[in-house]
Amino acid sequence: MPFATRLIAALALSLTLATGVPAQEETPTETQPALGQAVEDGGTGPLRVATRTAPPFAFVGPDGEWTGIAIELFRAVADELDRSFTLEEVPLDDMIDGTAAGTYDAAIAALSITPGREERVDFSFPFYSTGLGIAVHPDPAGGWLRVVRNIFTWQFLAVLAGLSTVLVAAGGAVWAFERRGNNEEFHPDALHGIGDGFWWAAVTMTTVGYGDKAPRTLGGRIVGLIWMFTAMLIVASFTAAIAASLTVGQLSQGISGIADLEDASVGVVSAATGADEMAARGIRARGFDTIEDGYDALAAGRIDAFLHDMPLLRWIALQEYQGEIQVLPDPIGRQDYGIALPEGDELREPINRALLAYIRSPEWQALVTRYLGGT
């Protein structure tokens, strides 16, 4: 062997002995990870996914297993990524809070992408676009029940209490003048006399005028004259208040869009996008825990309309409230559903690629049609 060759071999042997690292083999050993596989076991374990009941996107089926459009979508995405996952049912706020804190690897349901939520978590590309819907009572006969409900409210009772106070004041004033010179019609005793004055003020205000009581003294007649003109204004205002109550009571028959909700009694799911929409428009809304709670109030006539995501309203109305609830056909605004992920999560890009591939496949169209028909 030539001297130069022996020298090179000796140097290579010395370098190997000094570093303790063998030369790289041309083919990987069994202990080396395959291309694209994470070295850490934490990247291959089951994903912890938060969800909540939101049919037809996420709900527990008759077999006790979670199903729905969003659940089956995520199952297909996870299968494409070769990842298993477990589902945990939590409230809506906890879905966002837990994902933002890293407690959950993802959150999936009918989860709308909003600016406020985007500040706390990252979202996948939208997989379904819809809008808010308005549910109303379809039975026009129920309007008269709402008339009674709107008349006999605390505001109406407050008006009655104020009117009664004015009647007592007018009756007391006329009794003060009549108690000595007109004892036959206005009793000298304070309790009975003010009661006589109250009756006189009431029949005078309503222009019934039975004639059983009338002021005889100069002071009493001056009070009576002032009261007649004052009563005209009171009756006009009272009539207008009743007319307004009747109009509001009939609104359930005339709600055809978002503009009709300003003077109606509206229900929403608390902390959902419907509540945000009503707050943004300055419309007061009553919060409910679930769609079913809101639907029960709507069917009973306690509210005039219920606002929530349209596909969820339609699904529950069809499944549980046929003939009792009507969902208006035109959506309000736009709601995009996505998968929530912790900020900066490395799974976002592979999830997006798998999601986009799936929602362009015939399987996705068949899935949506199975749950929502042709809508």
Rank of each mutant, 00 (worst) to 15 (best):
S245D: 13
P2D: 15
S129W: 00
T247H: 13
L47Q: 06
L17I: 11
L35D: 11
L81E: 01
G323P: 11
V121D: 03
V147Q: 09
S245Q: 13
P22D: 07
F127A: 02
G68W: 04
G249E: 02
R216V: 14
G274L: 08
G373W: 08
T53S: 11
E88Y: 12
R180A: 11
T51P: 10
L160W: 04
M232N: 10
A317C: 07
V203C: 01
L163K: 08
A109H: 06
E178F: 07
L347V: 02
V49G: 05
D263P: 02
T247N: 13
G224E: 12
R334L: 10
T27G: 05
E30F: 12
A23W: 08
G45M: 11
F59C: 04
D276V: 03
G267C: 11
P22K: 08
A297V: 13
A107H: 07
R146V: 04
R334Q: 13
L15K: 01
A176E: 12
V159W: 08
I303K: 12
A54H: 02
E65W: 00
F198N: 05
E26I: 12
A357Q: 14
A240L: 15
G172R: 13
L341Q: 06
V368K: 08
Y210I: 07
R334F: 00
S112A: 15
E320I: 01
A78H: 06
E89M: 12
E178R: 10
T207A: 02
W154T: 12
E80K: 15
D309V: 15
A354V: 08
P350L: 04
L73T: 11
M205Q: 02
F238K: 00
G374F: 07
R179V: 10
L341W: 07
S256F: 02
D276E: 14
P311I: 13
A214S: 14
L157D: 02
V77M: 02
G219F: 12
T31Q: 09
V368H: 08
P33Y: 02
R348G: 06
G133Y: 05
T153K: 09
I194V: 14
V368D: 05
I325D: 10
A279T: 12
A58S: 15
F74D: 01
M310P: 03
A158L: 14
G211W: 06
A173I: 12
I151R: 09
L167E: 05
T86G: 05
G249D: 06
G220R: 12
E343R: 15
T239N: 13
G294W: 06
L15W: 05
A275H: 03
A259I: 02
P350Y: 00
I332M: 03
V148G: 04
R149W: 00
H308R: 03
G45H: 09
D122Y: 06
Q322L: 11
H192E: 02
R149N: 06
E40G: 09
R353C: 01
F288A: 07
V223T: 15
F198I: 13
Y104P: 06
P350S: 03
A78Q: 06
T165Q: 10
L87G: 09
